[in-house]
Amino acid sequence: MIAGLTGRTQHRKRRLLQGLFFLLFILAPPLNILRFDLYANNLVLFGQNLDLGFTGFQYGFTPSSEVILNLIFKAFLPLAAAGILLIWSAWRWGRLYCGWLCPHFTMVEGINNLMLHATGKPVIWEKAPLPLQQPNGKTLKTNTWYWLLLVTLSLGMSFVWAVAFLTYAIPPDVVYYNLLHAQLSFPQFLFITVVGIALALDFLFARHLFCRFGCSVGLLQGLAWMANDKAMTIGFNRSQARDCQECNNACDNICPMRLKPRTLKRKMFTCTQCGECIEACTQVEARRGKPSLLKWVAGDCATHKTSGRDHDQNCF
């Protein structure tokens, strides 16, 4: 799977998947791929209106037993199946959804990059600016004008997200019409305002902290991943660790979650498997004519990240 991807190929494919899934997140309601219509009290899935029986129950001609069965077979079981698939995927490959699809993590990486160019730090809470020399050998030049882009992106995307969330519950054509004609009802206006402010604060100050400590989807994936010692992870070639002395901790510096990829797996609980650390190490070592010290490993080769023992040389 992903273990076969390296360097820029992995980076480009991940960015493409992130972009496509981000568009799906925004366009799923207007394209009737997935939303719940509060006006009609039914679930819309791939263009089909799945009547859950709420309206009939409200007016007394649909029994409660039918509503319960509808909820079980049309809502709960599909969600449970999706959840099981997510947990199984995480058990084998880690938090792939987070690093390769999640729209929030896409924002984390984008804003991190802008903040790095504005301040020399990927997050405002970093103790000190990171080294200016990048893994590819180029020197980063900071510019405070990037703050304008950073704040504009954060506020703009907060609004877009808030509107998108609203369209998952209210027919998108109603929401868009009310927006264009400045006719939002007070509940609609209040929802967009409150959610937009919360998202703006998250994007500006707590984006990676939310991924690490506040996301239940990430937590479930992390727990499933930790339960499997042979799950795919970032392997570190300890036998060549002396090469790290000539590096400025490029793999640590590049990590969007502010983790240390060379450490034990239990300290990498919130790793999103983005693989940016592998690319950084690959670029650094390539300038010295050497292979990367980091790579994807799985099976027996992954156990050294949980046990702390030296890995099998055949793994690298």
Rank of each mutant, 00 (worst) to 15 (best):
R309L: 13
P256G: 06
T270H: 14
A302H: 08
R262Q: 15
T263C: 07
S292D: 05
R266T: 11
V284Y: 09
P256T: 05
T306S: 14
W296Y: 14
E279P: 06
R309G: 11
Q283L: 15
T303F: 04
L294R: 13
R287V: 09
P291G: 04
K290N: 09
R309T: 11
G289I: 01
P256M: 02
R262T: 15
V297Q: 03
P291F: 04
K295I: 00
D310G: 13
D300L: 12
A302Q: 05
E276K: 12
C274K: 07
L294V: 12
W296M: 06
C281A: 03
I278E: 11
F269C: 07
W296S: 10
T272Q: 15
S292I: 04
C281H: 04
M257Y: 02
T282L: 12
C277L: 02
L294A: 10
L293N: 12
K290L: 13
T306N: 14
L294H: 12
P291D: 07
A280R: 06
G275D: 03
K290C: 05
P256Q: 06
M268K: 09
L293T: 05
K290E: 10
V284A: 06
C301M: 04
E285M: 15
A286Y: 03
F269D: 05
S292E: 05
Q283W: 07
R262H: 14
M268T: 05
R258G: 00
R262L: 12
C281I: 05
G299S: 09
T263D: 13
C301N: 10
S292K: 01
G308C: 01
C271F: 02
T270K: 13
H304Y: 02
E285Y: 09
E285S: 15
A280E: 07
T270R: 13
Q283V: 02
E276H: 13
K290Q: 13
G299L: 06
A280T: 06
R262D: 14
C274E: 05
D300I: 03
M268R: 11
L293W: 08
A286V: 10
C277E: 05
K295D: 11
A298R: 09
P291V: 03
D300W: 04
K305S: 15
H304C: 04
K295M: 08
L264H: 11
A298M: 11
H304R: 02
H304M: 01
S307D: 00
S292W: 01
G275T: 03
H304E: 00
V297D: 02
D300T: 10
A302I: 02
Q273D: 00
V297N: 01
C277V: 00
T263V: 13
V297R: 00
G289A: 04
T306A: 13
G275M: 01
C271E: 02
L259D: 01
R258Q: 12
Q283I: 06
R288K: 14
G299I: 06
M257N: 14
P261I: 01
R258W: 03
T263Q: 12
L294E: 06
C281N: 10
L293Y: 04
L294P: 12
R258C: 01
R266K: 15
P261Y: 01
C274P: 09
